[in-house]
């Protein structure tokens, strides 16, 4: 189900926080059925790029195209309405709410008289978690505060894929996980792409990236330095781009 049209395309986006130029004229895209990895050193601007797409910190300049059409994302709601789901590095779960409440936060099902449809939400929450083999929870009615790091990450991923999303973005989803749980999340990432979703994966672990990603975009100091096809490169080349990357002569040009 690999399409030749990008689902998401950013053209020359920039973002400034006061004196910090977090992103400078970055081009970026993501194809359906592919995992696009986004790598770069700490502070390279990866999270800022994601938050721009999410509408949390809208870009100062540049254009965003979704499914071929130009879009303007000003809030997380706009982003979700397009079919983009994001799993944040800082998990964005409310500790005091239970698993079901977190999975449906902001999109609760409502019955007449403005009542929450708890039973149907709980059922679909359980269904989704089962389908992702997240079975270590004692109960979906326990507060998220009582979960382990891996369980919390699993909830965050499950939350993103439960909606009919076309593009799932994961910001360092395995950073805090053990070996087995990392394995599970990577399998899940690959499965999402194989089902035809566009996936963007931010990670520091090149080993993980080479395992699941189809393409790799390298950011450095807020600029895009290279973009690789995973099959035609190796870890040394990518590390070099991350640490000492030169800008390509024609920004956005792809060598394939």
């Amino acid at each position: 189900m690999v399409s030749d049209k990008p689902l998401l395309e950013l053209k020359g986006v920039s973002k400034r926080f006061g004196a910090v130029q977090a992103l400078t004229k970055v081009d970026f895209f993501s194809y359906p059925g592919q995992v696009m990895a986004l790598v770069g050193d700490n502070g390279a601007g990866k999270s800022t790029l994601i938050k721009g797409i999410a509408g949390i910190y809208p870009f100062d300049e540049g254009e965003v195209y979704y499914d071929g059409k130009q879009v303007h994302i000003h809030s997380p709601k706009d982003c979700a309405a397009l079919g983009i789901e994001i799993v944040y590095q800082d998990l964005a779960l409310a500790d005091n709410l239970d698993v079901v409440a977190n999975m449906f936060l902001g999109r609760e099902r409502v019955l007449p008289l403005w009542r929450l449809d708890e039973a149907s939400m709980e059922k679909d929450c359980v269904k989704t978690l089962d389908s992702l083999s997240v079975t270590t929870l004692r109960s979906v009615r326990q507060p998220v505060a009582s979960l382990s790091g891996g369980q919390r990450q699993a909830i965050a991923v499950a939350k993103a894929v439960m909606w009919n999303s076309q593009l799932v973005i994961l910001d360092e989803p395995t950073a805090a996980l053990g070996v087995a749980q990392t394995r599970q999340v990577l399998d899940l990432v690959r499965r999402l792409a194989d089902k035809g979703l566009a996936v963007v994966l931010i990670s520091h672990n090149l080993h993980d990236i080479f395992e699941v990603a189809d393409r790799i975009t390298v950011l450095r100091l807020g600029q895009k330095v290279r973009e690789f096809d995973t099959k035609q490169t190796n870890q040394q080349e990518v590390v070099h781009a991350i640490t000492a990357g030169q800008l390509e002569q024609v920004p956005g040009m792809v060598k394939s």
Partner: peptide, 24 residues
């Protein structure tokens, strides 16, 4: 406890940022 409004009240008190990102 039974309405979306109440749910958002708890969410804002538990994690304002999570609430914001959920589109609340």
């Amino acid at each position: 406890t039974k309405t979306p409004f109440g749910r958002y009240v708890y969410a804002v008190g538990g994690n304002k940022e999570a609430a914001r990102r959920a589109g609340i």
